[in-house]
């Protein structure tokens, strides 16, 4: 019931693990609501029943066992949440991505998301900070053969549907947080600590990449387009981007 209510407000889930994460959210809110509402009813009854009356005097105090009941209920609830819901989902996410995943490098900076695609050869070319230009914010070293078909898009992330996508995250300057709300993906991007995460989109669509960690004055506009396309469309997108690359001089 609480889960259905939450689903009305949550961004529509669009990744393979989203439903499971949402169920943890629903479970925590169910436990929270049960505890809070039952406590509230008890509280409300007492507020009315034990109000001071003219000429009245206080009566006998409550028995001694009450908190044991409350604590037992809460401990059981917590164990259920941890063991039955949250930790299994959490550990499953920590597993490496299955083979055959698409890969994208994400380089965050104030206040842009740069996406480095490996191209059809599926290998990322070397990068070198001294090669950074306005058009290439991550400095791809074109002398590396693996870099020949690499391309970089500023602020546009495109991934295929029904196939895992691994994002390799790094930051140039401060801490950002890579957020795909509909995919239930959020990962802090700390400079000096490259990290990866992955997800499998299950519906095509167009959403946004957000930054969830205060990263400076332009934090509020650090946003990128995020598109999930069908496999064929995605292949066409890659081919199109590669065809635009300037031939090596």
């Amino acid at each position: 019931m609480i889960g259905e209510w939450l689903n009305r407000w949550l961004p529509a889930p669009a990744s393979a693990h989203a439903a499971r994460f949402d169920s943890v959210l629903a479970a925590t809110h169910t436990e929270g609501a049960l505890i809070f509402l039952s406590w509230l009813v008890l509280f409300a009854i007492m507020l009315v029943k034990f109000r001071a009356r003219p000429g009245g005097a206080p009566g006998a105090p409550a028995g001694q066992r009450w908190p044991l009941v409350a604590v037992a209920a809460v401990v059981l609830g917590d164990v259920w949440l941890l063991a039955g819901s949250a930790l299994p989902a959490w550990f499953e996410r920590a597993r490496p991505a299955p083979p055959g995943a698409a890969e994208v490098r994400v380089v965050a900076e104030q206040f842009a998301w740069n996406f480095h695609y490996p191209g059809p050869d599926l290998h990322f070319g070397r990068t070198n900070p001294s090669l950074i230009t306005a058009a290439d914010p991550i400095g791809i070293d074109r002398s590396d053969p693996a870099a020949a078909d690499d391309f970089v898009l500023i602020g546009i992330l495109v991934v295929p549907v029904d196939r895992p996508t691994v994002v390799h995250l790094s930051s140039k300057d401060v801490i950002h947080s890579f957020t795909l709300a509909t995919m239930r993906v959020k990962q802090d991007v700390t400079p000096g600590l490259p990290v990866s995460t992955w997800f499998t989109p299950i519906t095509t669509g167009s959403w946004e990449v957000g930054c969830s960690q205060l990263c400076g004055l332009g934090h509020y506009r650090m946003r990128a387009l995020f598109e999930v396309r069908s496999e064929a469309e995605w292949q066409a997108f890659v081919a199109d981007e590669v065809s635009r690359l300037e031939p090596p001089s």
Binding site: L25, T28, H29, E31, A33, S85, K186, S212
Partner: peptide, 18 residues
């Protein structure tokens, strides 16, 4: 009680920094 979802990884991921 609203601390519960924030204290658990998967639900924290949805709500963190919101």
């Amino acid at each position: 009680v609203t601390g519960l979802p924030l204290g658990l990884g998967p639900s924290n991921l949805i709500l963190h920094d919101t």
